[in-house]
Every structure is written in structure tokens, then in C-alpha cells.
Amino acid sequence: MIEVRNLTKHYGDKHAVNNISFTVEDGEILGFLGPNGAGKSTTMNMLTGYISSTSGQALINGVDILEDPIKAKSYIGYLPELPPLYVDMTVKSYLNYVYDLKKCKLPRRAHLNEVMALTKVSDVADRLIKNLSKGYRQRVGLAQALIGNPPVLILDEPTVGMDPRQIQEILSLIKKLGKNHSVILSSHILSEIQATCDRIIIINKGVVAAHDTTDNLSKNISTDHRVIARIEGPREEIIKAIRNIEGIKYVRADMEREAGVYEYEIEAAPDQDIRRDLFDIVTEHHWYLLGLRSAELTLEDVFLKITMGEGIIVPSAEDKKGAKA
């Protein structure tokens, strides 16, 4: 379990991280999102005791990382942005070293073999780390974090440099580990976070810009009812006809997708379902409806919306409840 209370880090008068609070329960995976330089790695470095916080508190399994660093660190498996690998060691001797470094008590051979099998590095166990590809190095880094079976895992962009199949494997491994560990996972790749994490924190400019479950986050921002329709037919007439539907707020033709086929972005009044009306109009004029989809915001859109420009702060479901009460 990880508890973070008002964690702050200043470098001089620059606020790298400002007043961040969150909790990760056992058996939960928290996604950490944010553009480069937003403070993700700084936060993780504070949680793992690599750097100290200016103020605030980070508790790992109830132990303050600054008060009893050695005990707190023993609960953490950490994969930093750049895995801390000694490149002139073999994978096996490196993992043995980490085993000793962490003063691990589990049966050595069985445990190391288990970790290597989980992270799929058994077949390179006797190779020098400097001869491994980026994807393999990343997996050795993950193996290193798993040694000693720590209850808390902090993984800073664990899938960097992997091919799509390896990413799938590692994410499903993390998901499996998330059932009985507290996991913090940071990534730039939103689909990864969406597929793996229970909750998401978006950090922007050192503050928490959004904090919610994956589903709520996209719902929260996309309040308006919008669809995107792909229709074959004369553009001006179509726009005019759609405008005549009751409750339409906005319609716009997008680029030409095929010859004579445009995509139309249509926004109706909230809570109004215009899909049937749209269908009627199209058939009435003998146009063809080639595609229709809801323009609900993806996590990608949410991310961009939050982190672009000045950045907005999305209240979480809990905050809203609190406000109502």
C-alpha cells in the first residue's frame, strides 16, 4: 500500500512537483500519465527514496520513506526510467547481485528462476547485459524489481523499447502482479494505461490534473453528445438537411474520405439521440450512410485536452461527492 500526502519538490524556486496526494491500495494498479517533464519521474524518485521531498509525506506499507528509508525501500521493487543495469555482468550474475543487495530471504535458485521465467529472460540468463537489446534490458530491469517479491512495485515506463508482442506480455504480467501488489505504472502510451490500470492520475506541470477511474475520466470530459457520420452525397445539401433536424447545435463537414464521401461532425443538444433522425434524412434523400460513430472522447483526447495549453483540472468523482455533501 502506498500513501502519498501533499508531496512537494522544489528545485530552487522551480516547483517540480506540487502538493500531490493519492493512495494505492493492495491489489490495485495506478496509472501515471503526463507529458515529459510533468513530474512523473520526480514523484517516483521521491516515493523510492532516491531523492527527498521538500515537504509532504510518502508512506510505503505505513513506513515513511524518509524516516525509515531502509525498511521502506525493502518493500519496494523499483524500475527507474533507465534500468540500473551493470552492463558488463551476465543477466544471472546481475540478478544474483540484486538478490544479495536486497538481502532476499527466499530460496535463491528457485526464486531467481521464477523471476526470470516470469519476465522471460531465462534464455539470455548467461549473456552479458551489454549484448542485449533494449527490450531485453527493460525486462531484466523488471526482473530486478521483482526480486524479493516486494509488495509495492513502482515501474517507470516499463515497456519502452519493446516490440508490440513483448509489450502485450509485460502488460499482462503487470496486470497479474497487480492482483496482489500495489503497482504504480507510468507510461506515455495511453492505450497501455487504459488496458492495464484501475485508476489513472494525470500529472501536468507538477500537479495532479485529473484523478479517476479510466471510464469516468473520459465520461467526465465528454459531456456533449456528438457523433461523426460518414455520408455519400452532395455536401452542401447534406449540411443544410442536417441543420434542419431539431436540436442540432453544430454541424461541420470534415475532409473528403472517399470520392464524394465526407465525414460530418454533428453536435446535438445534450441528452438528445439524433442517430435515428439522421438515418431518416439520409434515406429520404437517397444518400448513403457509410459510417456512424459516437465521438466520445478517448483517453487520448482527454490527455491532450488536459495537458495542452494552460491545462485544466478535472474534478474527480470523489471531489464532486464532497462538493455536493
Binding site: 527514496g49 525501500k73 533507465l82 540500473p84
Partner: peptide, 14 residues
């Protein structure tokens, strides 16, 4: 230089 320092300083050692 090799950024292994981070592994050392976040390990449970004084």
C-alpha cells in the same frame, strides 16, 4: 554515468 546509482540508492542498504 551508467545510471546504476539509482538502483543502489533505492535498494534497502544504508
Amino acid at each position: 554515468k551508467q545510471k546504476t546509482e539509482q538502483g543502489l540508492l533505492t535498494a534497502p542498504v544504508s
